[in-house]
Amino acid sequence: MGDIVQIYNDYKDHADFLTVYVREAHPTDEWQMKSNVKDDVCYAQPKTLEQRVAIAKDFTARYKFPLPFGIDDMSNAADNAYAAWPERLYIIDETGHIVYRGGLGPFHYKPAEVRQWLAAKYGAVKQGAQTAAASASRASAPASTSSEGTTSLSVPAKSEK
């Protein structure tokens, strides 16, 4: 169904969003994927926080990633607390309790379930309805990426297909 960026565009008036960048899933010095080479997404596993921040900045700049962003520190505290690696989705309610726990990515990473949860609470939003106008206004600007979406996080390219 939609990816997380599309969901953000559709529901940002109803819910808050936070992306948490965790340790790399397919760095060059571990299990590199061909698709990452093809899309020139080649990074070694960061050994320092500065390296991790640099990759996060590359990511947000390359894809003009619109979601609020935080970075897990080198102790991997967020990953450890949420069993988040390589990718995972949660929804926390206003009282600080988990109301949705997504499955472990990539096989059970299902943004559609987040959309379903939000739709049940706030009503269905037609995918892309709120971004259509924004896309039209960006039509004269160069595309932000031609990537097929090799990132662990869902990037705009996927949502705009």
Partner: peptide, 21 residues
């Protein structure tokens, strides 16, 4: 630095964990 709970307000908070590669 900031805490995840600082981002909790009067609305649900969607947390998306992932990486670049």
């Amino acid at each position: 630095r900031f805490h995840i709970r600082e981002r909790l307000g009067r609305r649900p908070l969607v947390l998306a964990f992932g990486s670049f590669t």
